[in-house]
Amino acid sequence: MRGFLTLIKICKEKRKMIMSLAFADFRKRFVGSYFGAVWMLIQPLVTIAIYAFIFGPYGFKSSPPVPNVSYTTWLIPGMVPWFFFSEVMNMNTGILQEYQYLVKKVVFPIELLPIIKLISCSLVHLFFLLVMFLFALFSREPILITWPQVFFYSFATAFYALALSFFTSAVSVFFKDMQQIVGIVLQFGIWMTPIMYDETLFTGKAPIVKWILKINPMYYIVAGYRDSMLTGHWFFERPGLSLYFWGVTTVMFLFSLRFFRSLRPHFSDVL
């Protein structure tokens, strides 16, 4: 817990440097690219279009559980947090190798590197939140008072991703294959989260599968985005799931941060 409080103190003291490095990281990702930041939208939007075609009215004709809502309108609030989570995990796992010149500086608090990359990814996420809101408006969905609640669930996604990132980034320094393992787990994880399908699909057939899906913290986040955008439900209407998510994620965060700090003295030697 002391390490967490220390991290907050450092973030407060170095907030200007953190934001400066985060914006620099964001710009660096598109240096030399003709279309620049446009590419950050194209691939995810193409992915959404493919899933919408396969599972929507032209494919398997999946019916969303929300009445009078098209499959695409239901799909987008599930895909947007997953894009954010997967991007943070992919980017942060190799963050120490990418910024090894800062890792080797004794005076630089390297615990800030995953946070800097997280903020950089959050800038991309803001674009997708805008796309999600605009699509809902163009689809003539009713504007709900719960729409701003997606920012609460965005914070939940960021906190969960950061909790995992401290662990994967530290391991990646000593075990280079961690980057590939994370990529495989993410490919598997998107299907272990009810994003393209509704979990009621398993009701009566394999009820244990529905229980397993809810163990995944991303279930809480995806359900929260859809609650906010489509059904108008508040986060406190899922008290058990909320306590489970924040309890598990907090424990993971404290463990990962302590694990990261324990290996920190050896990073510069290996890099």
Rank of each mutant, 00 (worst) to 15 (best):
M1L: 13
L5M: 11
L7K: 05
I8M: 14
K9C: 00
I10W: 00
E13D: 13
K16T: 06
K16D: 09
F23W: 10
A24G: 12
D25T: 08
G32S: 01
S33F: 04
A37G: 11
A37P: 03
I42N: 11
I42V: 15
Q43A: 13
P44Y: 06
P44K: 07
L45I: 10
T47F: 14
I48N: 01
I48K: 03
A49F: 12
Y51C: 01
Y51L: 11
A52D: 10
G56A: 07
S62T: 06
S62H: 10
P65E: 05
P65W: 00
V69Y: 08
T72A: 13
W74N: 02
L75G: 01
L75S: 00
M79G: 02
W82A: 04
W82E: 10
F84N: 07
F84E: 07
F85W: 10
V88H: 05
I95D: 00
E98I: 02
E98C: 03
K104S: 13
V106E: 11
I115C: 04
L118G: 11
C121H: 08
V124P: 01
H125K: 12
L126R: 10
F127R: 04
F128D: 03
M132S: 11
L134K: 05
L137E: 02
S139L: 01
L144A: 04
W147T: 09
W147F: 15
W147A: 10
P148F: 00
F151Q: 06
F151C: 04
A156Q: 04
T157C: 10
F159Y: 15
A161D: 09
T168R: 01
S169I: 01
V171E: 08
S172K: 08
V173F: 08
F174H: 14
F175C: 13
K176Y: 13
D177F: 05
D177S: 07
Q179R: 12
Q180F: 15
I181W: 09
V182L: 02
G189R: 10
M196P: 01
D198V: 05
D198W: 12
V209Q: 03
W211R: 15
N216P: 11
Y219Q: 06
Y220N: 03
I221D: 07
I221F: 02
A223D: 07
S228Q: 07
M229C: 00
L230M: 06
T231Y: 03
T231P: 08
H233R: 05
H233I: 00
W234V: 00
W234Q: 01
W234R: 07
E237Y: 07
R238G: 07
R238C: 02
L241D: 06
L241V: 03
G247C: 14
T250H: 09
V251K: 11
M252Q: 06
F253R: 08
L257K: 09
R258H: 12
F259W: 10
F260C: 02
R261M: 02
L263S: 05
P265D: 08
F267S: 11
D269C: 13
D269T: 14
D269V: 13
L271S: 10
